[in-house]
């Protein structure tokens, strides 16, 4: 099933662009999907957003600098996520209210199951503005180094550091709210 060497050679003969796209796909698909998911989409939304990102990359392959495929894909998926989340974000902004998600209130003993933890993470991360969210997700969840993030986002390392700091502060504030709700529940 994984013996694909011959196929690779055929691809090379058929299309260098095809090979380039395929390599980018294989190398970055998982990362882009995780990013979409962690930046605020549901599983199925992440499926679609990742697909969108690769469609865009495929059609813009000519204008993507070699070696910048990952950055391009990431930038694209951030925009797609922002588009999809626009509606939800607007609701947050107008109400300024934590949505009623009593089901997320942790049990006092914090014996949270994974799904509940994941739901809280979604909620907390989504409260971060996108510029902080990307840095937070890349650093805290993806395990990227600050230098890697600076390269990927094409921003100065100092900016990465300050965004991370602010993201962490906001993360803490949101988590504190959950902890309190948990205590009161």
């Amino acid at each position: 099933m994984h013996a694909v060497t011959g196929e690779w050679q055929n691809e090379g003969a058929a299309s260098d662009d095809g090979v380039r796209l395929r390599r980018a796909f294989d190398a970055h698909f998982d990362f882009i999907w995780r990013s979409a998911r962690r930046l605020g989409l549901t599983d199925s939304e992440a499926d679609d957003a990742t697909q969108s990102a690769f469609i865009v990359a495929a059609r813009k392959l000519d204008s993507i600098e070699l070696g910048k495929e990952r950055a391009f894909l990431f930038g694209t998926v951030v925009r797609v996520v922002a588009d999809v989340r626009k509606g939800a974000a607007r609701r947050y902004e107008t109400t300024g209210e934590v949505p009623d998600r009593a089901d997320l209130a942790p049990a006092p003993d914090e014996a949270l199951d994974a799904a509940r933890s994941r739901a809280i993470l979604d909620d907390v991360v989504q409260r971060l503005p996108m510029d902080l969210r990307t840095v937070f997700v890349l650093f805290e969840l993806e395990g990227a180094t600050m230098a890697e993030i600076a390269t990927l986002l094409e921003i100065p390392p100092g900016t990465v550091a300050s965004r991370l700091r602010r993201a962490r502060e906001q993360f803490e504030v949101s988590m504190e709210r959950y902890r309190k709700r948990g205590g009161a529940a």
């Binding site: 994984h2 694909v4 690779w8 058929a14 299309s15 260098d16 662009d17 095809g18 090979v19 380039r20 796209l21 395929r22 390599r23 980018a24 796909f25 294989d26 190398a27 970055h28 698909f29 998982d30 990362f31 495929a58 392959l61 000519d62 070699l66 070696g67 495929e69 990952r70 950055a71 890349l138 993806e142 395990g143 990227a144 180094t145 890697e148 993030i149 390269t151 990927l152």
Partner: peptide, 28 residues
Amino acid sequence: SPARESSPPPVASGPAVPEVVAPEPSAT
């Protein structure tokens, strides 16, 4: 897919696609 089994490398760990771009786009 050949690379599917291995996790992607850490973010921006370097150019992932080393080959030179095709001077003429052949059919994708």
